[in-house]
Write a protein that binds this DNA or RNA. Structure first.
Lengths: 258, 258
DNA sequence: AGGTATTTGTTCGTATGTATT
DNA sequence: GAATACATACGAACAAATACC
């Protein structure tokens, strides 16, 4: 007994030049993040998705692979595809699986400029940035959003020495990382990145900017960019409300073990 | 003008039941790591691999995807497939604290056993551990301390399938990781680890165990240990009060930068 | 226990699009 | 423009794992 699911939803290719599977992945991602599917529940089967969206199974599988790589779902033969989210299924962003993604993944997000100013590093900031007080730095503030999302994923503060300040002159909305601007404009090359991850609680000011609740837990990720001679190129401090972001990484054992 | 490449190499499926693409990925990986292809050189094209090994292009592409995910190659339309690195350097940046460091660091700490019990996985826990509800798991709780320190660094919950439960029988104070016990006692081998990092706020119960203040921010780190066949070996959930721990990682540029 | 249906995994074939040389 | 190489997409089939009766 089959139910005729005549209603084939339209798969509109956003911005014209997106592959089919990417468009589908985007839709499914939004469905999950928008709470249309409960965590630990069974996702529509591949067959169902092929019929609903009128694409081949290959395309569906490639779209699901994107979600799987992002840790949004997990697949099990004979069972199906399981929504793999913890927490309230709201806006939850996912993360970084390789060092390349670490640097690249900003490409999928929009950086909305918030403010820009010069700051004199005081004691407190010096401790946070691991540099000397009295230094003059150029600071820009961004909100990072995934296109289409309501709430920002994170609030980012980027500090660079005054000589690189020109690299911070970005349009109101951009998606190319500042450090790449510096590399391109000044011919330097990022050689080492140090990343410190800690947890913090959002104060009133941060909560307001992020449209989150004060008192909510957040990841604070600080990244230091150095060139070959260990000179500091850039420091970024990001705040990710815990309900919107989980940093995910995979490590593989060396394949040599016999 | 075509060159007849008659010699079709044999694709022997190791251990009988390995998928074709996995066997091919293994061969190609060994070729690269064995130095058969120089870094920055062009890898054989998909068409060539298809003919040489007598498999379809799908299979070749799936094998190449494995290598690409590991950072061994990169693909560019119109150019070809480029060999990136042979040895440990994965791409432009390389995590200094790789698997070994990640796994080693527990060796410098003491694990104080707190409790041990069997848990029936409910909906909420199932989502957090990415397993099916109704499953029976063996849970142990530890406090991790640096020798001589007053306060514990973290509270750790470790879940293993019942068949590995024996590996959780540790002395009250130990410093060998559970997963190593499992490897030694059951002859399995950790092949991949997935690590999810998020922030949380300590509730009363956690704060009491950790001798911290309720409401303090904490890192919540969940690690999934898998063997070669992607079977789950162990899941650990750790809570680190933010005032006692910062996760720090370094990434270095690959020395090859062109 | 056994058999069938469902669901994901793998593999083949084929065609077309896009980027580079 | 033509040739090459990867990317995308469709269709089809069988295998393996699981669920249901």
């Amino acid at each position: 007994m089959e139910i005729q699911t005549s209603a084939q939803e339209r798969l509109e290719r956003v911005a014209g030049q997106q592959p089919l599977y990417a468009a589908l992945a985007g839709i499914l991602t939004r469905d999950i993040r928008g709470g249309k599917h409960q965590p630990a529940s069974v996702f529509p089967s591949e067959k169902e998705l092929t019929e609903r969206y009128g694409v081949s199974r290959q395309t569906v599988r490639q779209a699901l692979r994107v979600l799987r790589d992002q840790g949004l779902i997990s697949s099990h033969p004979g069972i199906g595809t399981i929504v793999r989210e913890s927490a309230p299924a709201r806006d939850r962003f996912n993360a970084v699986n390789s060092t390349e993604e670490l640097l690249q993944f900003v490409g999928d997000t929009e950086m909305h400029a918030v403010s820009r100013r010069n700051v004199l590093v005081d004691q407190e900031l010096a401790a946070r940035l691991d540099c000397q007080p009295g230094l003059l730095l150029s600071e820009v503030a961004f909100l990072r959003k995934t296109p289409g999302a309501d709430l920002p994923m994170s609030y980012v503060l980027i500090y660079v020495p005054p000589r690189y300040a020109a690299a911070q002159e970005t349009p109101p909305v951009s998606n190319s990382p500042i450090y790449q601007n510096i590399e391109r404009m000044f011919g330097v090359r990022v050689h080492e990145i140090r990343q410190d991850v800690t947890a913090t609680v959002l104060d009133d000011k941060l909560a307001q900017v992020l449209q989150a609740k004060a008192g909510e837990a957040a990841l604070q990720i600080t990244r230091f960019f150095y060139d070959e001679s260990k000179a500091l190129i850039q420091v970024s401090v990001s705040y990710y409300p815990s309900s919107r972001y989980t940093q995910s990484a995979r490590f593989r054992a060396a394949p040599n073990a016999a």
